[in-house]
Design a protein around this nucleic acid. Structure first.
Lengths: 234, 234
DNA sequence: ACTTGCTTCAAACAGGCGTTTGAAACGTCG
DNA sequence: CGACGTTTCAAACGCCTGTTTGAAGCAAGT
């Protein structure tokens, strides 16, 4: 009797590997329907394997879930690496890049990212997989944001304040991902296309933050150019 | 044979009313565990009624859920009404009040508010109950915010921009409610107590917004005064 | 060919789920 | 009281869930 497959080959066949197929299907299913609503039968149907396979490879549903979260997260890190800047890049530019990157990763139209949906579920209602997610994925990203803000404010603010400002920036992006459907109910569709695209939002969030920090003109300045980043005021 | 109780008394007994007891228990249970994980048996156990009661009063689980969301929302509106300001109140003050009110309603320590948790679930993954929630509850609140911002910017920005700025403000509050546990993993506990209490956050979000709009000094100014108004930087 | 170990499969299992049932309890009116 | 509509109840009904089972398939190794 075997409770779970004892040892896994280091780097197996790939798409042919049943284990990989199950993980992918499970991620999609868990992301879409949540842990409880997703069923092992549906997952196995989508993966093209027998229902007993999940028990054979992962033991039970809970461990399959945890593995699929980690799997999705690893895949996503591989897809969207942290930004690297050349030395001398102005911090305003770095902030804009960071925000644009974050929004693209969250809302990116490149592909409906079920990985992000799955991770969002963990953020909103953490389970065992959450801590790993935070340590491996979220904390490093957040640290980059804080360091950019530190550079931007040239040491005038302490880390606690910087973290709080970082949360303000992340929160704005977060809203559109987590509560996107409600946002779409609150503003007209034309406005969504115009002002709430990932790129336009990146401009807005960056301008908003830079203005708040005194690194750019306030949003109410007369030209009211919304679409381009601007350097410090005259 | 009765599919559902035909007509409901206008304003029934109150706590003695089984219907009311079921709604309350259901709201708590749905808020805590989600629609699928919450079971009718547990709800009825908590409400002290027979399992058949929910079918008798509401027909089935789905309609019970919808009713319980509406019930929670009505209760919450009664608890925390929209702010009313005397004529002549400065818009900076109004913004601060609004943000403080929003944060208090979302994070308020007065009581662990299962109603908010339930509504948050609707926002994050809308069902049929969501549209009503938006129309009756969220949209009016958001309209108030936009009108305050309009007053604050004295017509220099159009409604679309104002709505986008409104989203920025709401997003910051939203993060702490929806992703609170992750926030707590990212910043030290002492910092949470100090800078992330509802009141401190209200100050921060307001200052951040006012500074961005040029209605107060940037956050990096030396005295770091929170709420005093000041015109655009030199 | 025969064993050996890993993998797959159809079928079944026990338990929990939402829902239904038919009768008992209740209160109210004639 | 006896009849009646409303409300409660214990028990059951299907159905679907996660999980297990024992046998069959399969690719080496000897």
């Amino acid at each position: 009797m075997v409770v779970a497959r004892q040892s896994r080959q280091i780097s197996s066949a790939g798409v042919d590997d049943p284990r990989e197929r199950i993980l992918s299907a499970a991620g999609r299913e868990f992301a879409e329907r949540g842990y409880d609503s997703a069923t092992i039968r549906d997952i196995c149907l989508a993966a093209g394997v027998n229902v007993a396979a999940v028990n054979y490879y992962f033991g039970d549903k809970r461990r399959l879930y945890i593995e699929s979260v980690k799997h999705a997260h690893e895949e996503r890190v591989r897809q969207v690496p942290l930004s690297e800047w050349q030395p001398g890049t102005p911090p305003e530019r770095k902030l804009h890049d960071f925000v644009a990157n974050l929004l693209e990763r969250m809302l990116g139209l490149g592909q409906p990212p079920w990985q992000v949906r799955l991770m969002m579920r963990e953020v909103l209602q953490p389970t065992e997989a959450c801590r790993e997610l935070v340590e491996d994925y979220i904390r490093p990203h957040f640290a980059v944001l804080v360091s950019v803000l530190r550079e931007l404010t040239a040491g005038r603010l302490g880390d606690p304040e910087l973290r709080r400002i970082g949360m303000s920036i992340v929160g704005q992006c977060f809203l559109y991902r987590a509560a996107g459907q409600v946002v779409e109910m609150l503003v007209p569709q034309s406005e969504i296309d115009m002002l709430h695209s990932p790129a336009a939002l990146a401009d807005h969030v960056t301008s908003y933050g830079l203005a708040a920090l005194g690194a750019a003109a306030p949003l109410t300045s007369f030209p009211a150019a919304g679409a381009s980043q601007k350097d410090s005021p005259a």
